[in-house]
Design a protein around this nucleic acid. Sequence first.
RNA 1: GGAGAGUUGGCUGAGUGGUCGAAAGCGCCUCCCUGCUAAGGAGGUAUACGGGCAACUGUAUCGAGGGUUCGAAUCCCUCACUCUCCGCCA
Length: 414
Amino acid sequence: MIDTNLIKANSKDISERLKLRNYSFDEDLFANLEAQRKKYQTETEDLQAKRNTLSKEYGLLKKEGKDDTALSKNIESIKIDLDTCSNKLNEIQSSLKEFLLDVPNLPDDSVPSGVDEGSNKKIREHGEPAILKGKDHLEITSMIDTESANLLAGSRFAVLRGEIAKLQRALIAFMLDKAAEHGYTEYYLPMIANTESLTATGQLPKFSDDLFQLTDDYFLIPTAEVPLTNLYRDQILNLNQLPQKLTAHTSCFRSEAGSYGKDTKGLIRQHQFEKVELVQICHPDKSFEALENLTSDAETILKELNLPYQVVELCSGDLGFSAAKTYDLEVWIPSQETFREISSCSNCTEFQSRRAKIRFKEDGVSKYVHTLNGSALAAGRALIAVIENNYDQKGAINIPQALQDYTKCSSIKV
RNA sequence: GGAGAGUUGGCUGAGUGGUCGAAAGCGCCUCCCUGCUAAGGAGGUAUACGGGCAACUGUAUCGAGGGUUCGAAUCCCUCACUCUCCGCCA
């Protein structure tokens, strides 16, 4: 949520910046709602103040046994006005909130402008992508079983068997250990979140179609960013508690509505996948520095797995709803002869902390923290990358050195 | 799932219809006293939002939501959570 004072002060500027990310901000509607909010709030509070004083007087009169009919009438009429006024106020406040919850975060000034991914900017590259087009992961091994998954649940699910299931588990354990090395505290979390949590991090109310909803107030999480960030919801931290660095492995669930026909083959786009997430809660002055660190924490894993990848800075039009600045890490997928997103590291500035009311106290003043998140990494996609980039073309997958402590073997027969 | 008890400020804990944003203690902060240590004294110490250049001031908040009342921390209803006992269970 954007600071309303900021909008009031520079409505034009805000509107321009939001245009960069293809959001058209209705300045007039906002100004109108905000003006009305102010009017009705002041009026309501005045009436409440009046009622409070008169009620006190009434009490005194009663005590002294004096006549109270005139006062009683006066109070009654104030109550009627107050009722109308506060109803109106509630109505406007919820419209205003609805309006504001729909507005995406402001792109940071450093973000390249552009309408779509075509304007994303490659920052750096690491490793040597394979020259020849390779087999895809489904062709390489039958231990990824989409047919069974289809039988059990439907499309966009996978059953992993034997060594491949173990390989994914090894990847997750490796990633968690790396996160711990980088100072992140490991969490085990509910994989169901409620409406409030999902609203705080920005998935709701706008993107409910992307979520699996279980019941009225239960949703499967689309990422561990949701529970991890919400751990601090409604809290005021001490300055010395910052930064907080958290990590968790969870399953992630996405409806993938609107992606029919996209990446239908293999593990690339699933309804359920495993991911290790990094989250940082930090001082506003440190968040852009923290984004560089968090991104490099995620990169370390790709480096140690010897996977070729590139780092891309998203342009304004390609930013996610809550992000002010994002780096995508894209890993080389030989069968597709292209780089595919395997991590997305974002600085959400105070967008989520305003929604979640996560603050810290500095010099006696409470301020909003900045929140950051990034995958380190998406395990399903990492699995594909490891399989395809290490297939020896003869029936074995060579396990990267860094993983061998976990797999207890140096290659897998497929 | 059944029965009972509870939820008040950073903490402990008073408060059963008005003078209560809330006693007292602890903690914390400022100042005073004191040549160390220890002790003592005075004052201050929630959050959000609104109005005001500011000093300041208004409103709301005693688990959450609704209700009764001129007036609710206090009475009524619903819900959540915690604890104890029983049942069941990984």
